[in-house]
Design a protein around this nucleic acid. Structure first.
Lengths: 216, 216
DNA sequence: TTGTAAATATTAACAGTGTTAACTATGTTT
DNA sequence: AAACATAGTTAACACTGTTAATATTTACAA
């Protein structure tokens, strides 16, 4: 029935429609629950049709990953008009944390899950495009840190290494939060504080206060 | 055949043997590849037998997680005899990073994977024992930071919040490394350095140098 | 318009997965 | 010996990703 009705509808952009269906499923239910059969049923096609447009499931997931990196890069490039480098650094951190909260599944895809990474290595080697957005984001961080150093912050530290450490801290906060460890630590009264949403902000504020202190 | 031969062998400690088989599989192949059927075949029992000893797959994985936390706690408690608090903090960081490298699958189980956490919330509520080891580890960190502060480090920072930030940084380094992002950043020549094993050490050294600077 | 080749989509199937229900031995207790 | 609980089994369900073979539709030349 469904198969018959959609036949008179447009059948172009099928590749995109597959991706859209996959995205909806993925963002709502996560990687595991996003099965080829569910995607197929969402677009009213047979499961095997999907293999005419994507090599395999990881190919789809990898394409979504690219999208995630693009979104993050876009959010970052909106911060280029923040002149003060330290303020920009703060804004970048908040943007990153916010992204990890609002786009949790994307974040896992981009930085945690091994599936898209494995696909990437097998198919593309090391030269892959989606990472360009990631690389650009990292370079933006390095550039900002360098500017901060010119303004008197973080003196005597290797710029790129320091950037990596800043990324680590924010990434660590994101993932500890995403996986419930921060909430847990609060619930066990190891840290006395308000609710889970606020503690992340408080932790980041502490971090900024901490960074601010590293003047020459 | 196998089923008949093992019958005259001891059939006690089966729960433990299941766990051992699961552990071998899990540490070698990871969570996905550790199927109930493979575990069963390793101990020469029918797959359904396992359900007589464990509620489900996540029950097994959760039991392994407990073991992981115990191992880490043991490694940490070996550092209690380091008197200088800052030296102890450094040792803890190195121990943590080393643990994430040498016990990668354990680490993912303990801090990243959602499966054992979900099991835990459904079955045990919030009061769970394995976390006690984790909580103890965190408290050990808080204690060490507090001692550092008494020695003049990290003045004016909330002890527990600062501990969380230190954990975040080291956890961030671990996970970025585990998931290939640090190697990637190096390969893209974003950071000029030796091989992937050494850059993690270099990054940690930078972090220590950074922390050392935060004197009163 | 018809015939043929290419593109596109489908069904059937394989080899797996976690998990449950029903059944069969085995050993213990009355 | 009869009843019962325990331990282990087989069979099955409802899934999964993926491939091969088959059918259908489209495009294009005669």
């Amino acid at each position: 029935m469904g198969i018959k009705e959609r036949k008179e509808r447009h059948k172009e952009d099928l590749r995109q429609r597959i991706l859209d269906a996959a995205k909806v499923l993925f963002l709502k239910e996560g990687y595991e629950a996003t099965s080829i059969r569910k995607i197929a049923s969402a677009i009213e096609f047979s499961p095997t049709t999907i293999y005419l447009y994507y090599k395999d499931k990881n190919d789809i997931i990898y394409t979504l990953q690219k999208e995630g990196f693009k979104v993050l890069r876009t959010k970052f490039s909106a911060l280029t008009n923040v002149d003060d480098p330290f303020e920009r650094l703060k804004a970048m951190g908040r943007t990153y944390l916010q992204f990890s909260i609002e786009n949790r599944e994307f974040y896992e895809l981009m930085f945690i899950m091994k599936e898209p990474l494995e696909y990437l290595q097998k198919v593309c080697g090391i030269e892959a495009e989606q990472w360009d957005d990631g690389v650009e984001a990292f370079n933006f961080l390095v550039y900002t840190i360098a500017e901060c150093q010119r303004a008197g912050y973080f003196k005597g530290h290797d710029t790129k290494m320091f950037s990596l450490l800043v990324w680590s801290t924010v990434h660590g906060l994101s993932t500890l939060n995403m996986h419930g460890h921060i909430t847990h630590v609060v619930e066990k009264q190891l840290i006395e504080l308000k609710d889970g949403a606020q503690i992340l902000d408080a932790a980041f504020d502490s971090y900024i206060k901490f960074l601010e202190q590293i003047k020459g």
